[in-house]
Design a protein around this nucleic acid. Structure first.
Length: 551
DNA sequence: TTAGGGTTAG
């Protein structure tokens, strides 16, 4: 009798807690209810724990998601499923759902058709093709392969791991398909931008399509660099939503067509945070930082709150514009509005401060990044290198190598710049060789420019000239300019003449090249030649003095 | 179970 009263009492409390959780909308509220559950000794209740786990994930609070799960002594299938789903929603913690899956197998609990789709979301987010394939094998053995959502998420997982053929393998074997199955395959094509004629054929023969199918076709053509076809799809769509407009807009910005993007932006029936951010990013990435900032202020006027992604591009725009006031403004904006200081935001801040010469602040912010990636390292290295801190830049590069972060082409631009500005010719040549041989990075025009600059500063003009002539991408203004500047330093008229001739052809309106050559002649007292160059400059660069030509 | 936005470059 007493037991039943007590259990009735307890059930009341469980119901009450469940009702409270249903109504809970904020993280502080959630923590309060969690505390109530704990005080009432209900934390072993698996249903309440499942709800808590989901809500903590919804508020992106992985620490507590894990805490709640691990405080339940014998987790059942439902709690495992809720927790796997919870971690699959937090991109940085997807690996946890795979760990949970392994744990549930170990505990002898059999996954069901609700387990797999979320697991595959995690595999997709991690590009964990290996795990995904293994779990696929278990599905075949256990007979859950007849569930549509399970197969659909499998197609999606293979697609997101760039395994288009495997997506088709699953798709072709399905006896029953729905629009999601088709869309998942179209999404796989879209991600790669590959084989769009096959995608088009599939699209044309779909029994039913929806706006997601159309949008996937746009993405596919954009990623395949076929903007005309992308636009044709966009124009033919029976109905467009805000995603369709934004997708097309991004298609234009990705290919540098900012004007077309802006036309679309102005014509959109509705805009959301993502559309604004996409347009701001379009400007920031295509060398129009002023426009990016102007649009950001219009976004504020429209009372759309920016998030971390928006601010990443805004910071990048400020970095390009420079100026103490702007740098200070954006820094305090991020602080005051509580913008999430994630890896990308911090990297953009590191880059901005480094570009503006505030090396200490850049280093301080870099230390705030828990796991710096190739972007964060490159931002710091290039920033340090271009402000005369070559030694420090190389020190950071060594740290990067020690932490097993793979450098990319841009990292090496920074590394080579550091060597060139510090006069470390031997090291520079060694890094160059290592870049090609160990890291299999194809040297670009910027790398050549660094090495040419380095050799030129060291007075090895013949060697530098030889390198310029061996560039597989042909003559390039950056490398040629560096060599011409070195010719000025060392008064080498012969190489200067040959280099300047090429530069005049490549950039006839860049007056700096004429001025350099004229001053080389002047330093050798070849006054007649110097005058000739100045006259040629006046003919070709009317009213186009350096610093004004971009207006 | 399916679709859109972010950082590094002489």
């Amino acid at each position: 009798m007493q037991t039943s009263v007590r259990s009735h009492h307890k059930n009341n409390k469980v119901d009450r807690a469940a009702t409270l959780l249903k109504a809970c909308i904020s993280l502080p509220q959630l923590k309060q209810i969690h505390a109530f559950i704990f005080r009432s000794n209900l934390h072993q209740n698996k249903s309440l724990a499942s709800t808590l786990v989901s809500l903590y994930a919804f508020h992106s609070f992985p620490r507590y998601t894990h805490l709640v799960f691990s405080s339940v002594s014998n987790p059942n299938l439902s709690l495992f499923n809720h927790s796997i789903r919870a971690f699959s929603k937090i991109p940085s913690h997807c690996i946890q759902s795979i760990h949970l899956y392994l744990q549930m197998i170990h505990n002898g609990i059999k996954p069901d058709n609700f387990t797999y789709p979320f697991l595959f979301n995690s595999c997709a987010a991690l590009s964990a093709l290996h795990h995904g394939t293994e779990i696929h094998g278990r599905i075949i053995r256990s007979g859950f392969g007849s569930y549509l959502p399970v197969c659909n998420s499998l197609i999606d997982m293979y697609g997101k791991c760039n395994a288009l053929d495997r997506s088709y393998d699953v798709f072709d074997e399905m006896s029953e398909k729905d629009v999601v199955s088709y869309n998942a395959v179209l999404g796989a094509h879209a991600k790669l931008g590959e084989d769009m004629s096959r995608a088009q054929q599939l699209f044309d023969h779909m029994p039913v399509s929806n706006v997601i199918s159309w949008n996937a076709m746009i993405v596919g053509y954009v990623n395949g660099s076929d903007l005309d076809s992308a636009r044709a799809v966009f124009d033919r769509m029976p109905e467009r939503n805000v995603v369709s407009w934004t997708t097309m807009l991004v298609g234009y910005t990705k290919h540098g067509l900012v004007g077309s993007a802006r036309d679309l932006f102005d014509a959109m029936p509705q805009r959301n945070l993502i559309s604004w951010t996409a347009m701001i990013t379009g400007y920031a990435q295509n060398g129009q930082p002023g426009e990016a900032l102007a649009l950001f202020h219009r976004m504020e006027e429209a009372r759309i709150k920016p998030d971390a992604a928006t601010m990443t591009s805004v910071i990048s725009a400020c970095a390009q514009l420079g100026g103490t006031e702007l740098v200070q403004w954006v820094g305090s904006y991020v602080d005051q509005k509580g913008i999430e200081r994630n890896e990308r935001v911090l990297t953009a801040l590191v880059d901005m401060h480094a570009k503006c010469g505030n090396v200490e602040e850049a280093c301080r912010l870099f230390k705030e990044i828990p796991q710096p990636d190739v972007f964060s390292y490159s931002a710091l290295i290039t920033g340090l290198a271009s402000h005369g801190h070559g030694i420090k830049a190389l020190e950071i590069f060594r740290k990067m190598q020690a932490s097993d972060i793979e450098p990319d082409d841009i990292t090496f631009v920074g590394v080579l710049t550091a060597c060139s500005h510090t006069g470390l010719v031997e090291d520079g040549l060694r890094f160059w060789e290592s870049m090609v041989k160990n890291y299999l990075i194809e040297p670009g025009a910027d790398h050549y420019a660094c090495i040419v600059d380095m050799l030129g500063r060291a007075g090895q003009l013949e060697e530098a000239h030889r390198l310029v002539r061996s560039m597989p991408m042909g003559p390039h203004p950056g490398a040629l300019g560096a060599l011409l500047a070195a010719c000025r330093t060392y008064g080498n008229v012969q190489i200067a003449e040959s280099v300047a001739k090429q530069l005049f052809e490549l950039e006839p309106e860049n007056s700096g090249n004429y001025i350099l050559l004229a001053s080389i002649y002047a330093s050798r007292e070849q006054w007649e030649e110097a005058t000739k160059v100045r006259v040629a400059m006046k003919e070709k660069c009317v009213n186009k003095l350096p610093g004004c030509s971009w207006i």
